[in-house]
């Protein structure tokens, strides 16, 4: 043991025999108490401390897993609700389109039939009015002929004294008119 001489040289202590870590006289007590203390440490850790830490961490893991699962369920629910909303929105939109189209068509047909009725009524009124005008015109022309013939006969009677010329004058007016 080279260390023995070396140690005694450097320390010079009376008690110091061997290099302490290799001094076998201290081995029995170290070994004895190491076994006791290590067994105590093992018992305390495995019975008391580690189950406690494991329980804390398991509780956290459960909590997190549960929360994540609940969040996922809520997310799915939200997505389903959103899909339902979008579907009903699309349905309402297409319904509205149909209703609008039907209403437009109905209104257009009503307008068309009213237009037609009005048109025919107006046409009838125009026709009667035209007839009345034509009659009035014919009557006016007729009276004009009579006046012309009478005037002509009167002028001739005044000039010549011949009174029975009226039919001849009417004949002449009719010939001129034609």
């Amino acid at each position: 043991m080279a260390t023995i001489t070396e140690t005694t040289e450097t320390t010079g202590q009376p008690e110091g025999g061997a290099f302490p870590p290799l001094d076998s006289s201290t081995f029995p007590s170290q070994l004895f108490w190491l076994v006791i203390f290590f067994a105590l440490l093992y018992a305390l850790l495995s019975r008391l401390v580690l189950p406690r830490l494991a329980a804390i961490m398991a509780a956290r893991k459960n909590q997190i897993d549960g929360d994540v699962a609940r969040a996922q369920a809520l997310k799915n629910e939200t997505e389903a609700a959103l899909r339902a909303y979008e579907k009903s929105l699309a349905d309402a939109r297409s319904n509205a389109g149909e209703i609008g189209k039907a209403t437009r068509d109905k209104a257009a047909s009503i307008a068309a039939s009213q237009q037609k009725a009005l048109d025919s009524e107006l046409a009838a009124k125009i026709k009667t009015a035209e007839d009345t005008i034509a009659k009035a015109k014919a009557k006016a022309l007729q009276s004009l002929h009579t006046i012309a013939a009478d005037s002509a006969a009167d002028i001739v009677a005044q000039l010549t004294g011949v009174k029975t010329l009226k039919p001849a004058a009417a004949k002449a007016v009719a010939a001129v008119k034609n």
């Binding site: 201290t26 007590s29 108490w33 203390f37 290590f38 105590l40 440490l41 305390l44 401390v49």
Partner: peptide, 18 residues
């Protein structure tokens, strides 16, 4: 197997850790 300073610290280790 007397109780030494080394053994005292072994006890400290157990006490401190736990």
């Amino acid at each position: 197997i007397g109780f030494t300073n080394s053994n005292l610290f072994m006890g400290f280790i157990v006490l401190l850790t736990v």
